[in-house]
Simulated scan of single mutants.
Amino acid sequence: MIQLTYNAIVIYPLNDSHSLEFTKKAIAVFLIFLPFSLLYINYLYVLQNKFFPSNRDGYVLTFEAIKLLQNKGKSFIHATRETKGKINRANLEQILSDIPKHRYTKYTSYNNLPNTFFEQCELSIEEDNKIYIIVSSTGSPASELISVFTKKEYNHVSISFDKDLKTIISYNGGNHVQQPGLNVEDLQSFYQKEDSNILVYSLQATREQKQKLLNKIRNINSEGSADASIVSWTQLS
C-alpha cells in the first residue's frame, strides 16, 4: 500500500528537475525492495528462534541444524554473487525509466489488440485443439531483477492459441510501443540476451473452452488492463 500510494501521489505527477525526479524514482525502487527485506529479516528471526538454544523453549542445536545453517549461508553467498551481475547500473536505469509509464491504480491499455490477432485465434479454434503456455526467461532487466528474489530462471508466462506461436499474448510493459497491459507478443521479444530461452507446454482444450478464453480476452481488451500481476491474473481467472 505504501508503494501504491507513493507512486500515485509522487511519481506520476513528476514536474521537477532532473535530479529531483531521479531521487523520487530511486525512493520508488527502494520501496519495491522493502517488503522483501522485511521478509528476509523475519526469516532470520524465525531461524534464530528455531535452531539456537533457548532456556525458555529448551531447543537443542543439532548437527543437522548446523548443516542446514551452513547450506543457507552458502546459498546466500551464491545468490549475492549472482545478484551483482543482475542488479547493475544499466538494468536499474532501464527499470527507473519504465516506472512512470506504469499505472497500478487505473487501466491504461484499451483496445490495443489488433483485429488480425482475433482472426488468427478464431482460425486456430477450428484447426487446433490445444492451448499453449509459454514460460520464458527473456533476460530483460525486469526479468533479471525478479529472478533475484524468486531464485527462478523463468519469470514470465504467456499463452498462445496456435502451435506456431503466432497468437502469443500476455500482460507486459508494451515494449515501448503499447501501453503496459494485455498485449500481443512475438517470439523475437523473448530474445533479449544470449542466454534467453523459453519452455512451451501444450494443454488439451475443446473449441468451447478456447472460445470462452478468447471471449474473456475480448472483454479485457475493451474494458482496459494494466501491467500489474494481481489485477491481471484476477481478470483471467
Rank of each mutant, 00 (worst) to 15 (best):
Y107I: 10
I99Y: 00
K130A: 10
K106H: 14
E126G: 02
F117G: 01
E126P: 01
S109E: 11
E122S: 06
S124H: 00
K130Q: 12
E127V: 10
E122M: 05
Y110G: 01
F118C: 09
Q120H: 06
L96V: 10
N129E: 10
E122P: 00
E126W: 04
V135A: 15
N111M: 07
H102W: 07
I131V: 11
P100Y: 03
L123D: 11
Y107W: 07
T108D: 13
S124Q: 04
S109W: 09
Y110D: 06
E122V: 05
Y104K: 05
S97M: 11
I133P: 00
P114F: 10
I131K: 00
S124C: 05
N115H: 07
N112I: 06
N111Y: 08
Y107P: 01
S124I: 08
I134G: 04
P100G: 12
I131L: 15
L123G: 02
I134S: 10
Y110V: 11
Y132N: 00
I134T: 11
I133D: 09
Y104G: 00
H102N: 12
Q120P: 01
Y104P: 00
N111L: 08
H102S: 07
S109R: 09
S136T: 15
Q120K: 15
C121R: 02
S124G: 00
Y110S: 06
T108Y: 06
F118W: 07
Y104N: 05
S97K: 14
L123A: 09
K106L: 06
C121F: 01
E119D: 10
T105P: 02
F117H: 03
K106W: 06
I134R: 02
I131R: 01
Y110W: 07
E119T: 09
E127D: 13
R103Y: 04
E126K: 07
N115Q: 15
P114W: 14
Y104F: 12
D98G: 11
D98H: 13
S109T: 09
T105H: 11
T116N: 14
T116F: 09
K106Y: 09
L113T: 12
I134Y: 07
I99K: 02
E127S: 14
E119R: 10
F118R: 06
L113W: 05
S97R: 14
Y110C: 07
F118N: 05
Y107T: 14
L123E: 11
F118T: 04
P114R: 14
E126T: 08
D128E: 13
T108S: 13
D128M: 05
V135Y: 06
T105L: 13
L123C: 03
Y107M: 12
H102P: 01
S97A: 15
N129C: 06
L96Y: 03
N129Y: 02
T108M: 12
D98S: 15
I125P: 00
L96T: 08
I125A: 03
I131Y: 01
P100Q: 10
T116L: 12
Y132V: 01
I99F: 01
R103M: 06
V135I: 15
D128V: 08
R103T: 01
Y110E: 04
K130F: 08
P100C: 09
D128Y: 05
S109F: 03
P114S: 15
T105Q: 08
H102G: 02
I131P: 01
Y132P: 02
K101T: 14
N111C: 10
K130P: 02
L123P: 03
I133S: 10
E119C: 04
T105G: 07
